[in-house]
């Protein structure tokens, strides 16, 4: 992903930690917007993994099945707390 390359370059340049944090937050906000536009919030029934819909019963709770379609790099995943872009940002990220 493009973000990983950007982050790696920031680290290589050895910029001060503060500047880097600001940059990361900017990137995160940009990424949230992009994912908003790309409709990646898993709010619609567009996912092919939705195998629950056929047999749903009243008074039962269901969670949409996750599609394992994209992954962050391991470094990015450890930073964010998830390997999966589709699970990042589904709740507003606290700052």
């Amino acid at each position: 992903m493009k973000r990983n390359v950007d982050d790696a370059q920031v680290e290589e340049k050895g910029e001060r930690a503060e500047e880097k944090d600001e940059r990361i937050e900017e990137n995160d906000e940009q990424e949230e917007l992009e994912r908003d536009n790309m409709n990646m919030w898993n709010m619609n029934d567009t996912c092919n993994c939705q195998k629950t819909s056929a047999k749903m019963m009243l008074a039962h709770a269901y969670v949409p099945w996750q599609c394992y379609d994209e992954a962050f790099s391991p470094q990015e995943a450890l930073k964010k707390g998830t390997l999966f872009p589709s699970l990042y940002g589904v709740y507003p990220i606290p700052r």
């Binding site: 930073k79 964010k80 707390g81 998830t82 999966f84 699970l87 990042y88 589904v90 709740y91 990220i93 606290p94």
Partner: peptide
Amino acid sequence: LRFLWQREVV
């Protein structure tokens, strides 16, 4: 704390 927060979501 944000990392631990994200783990709760997962």
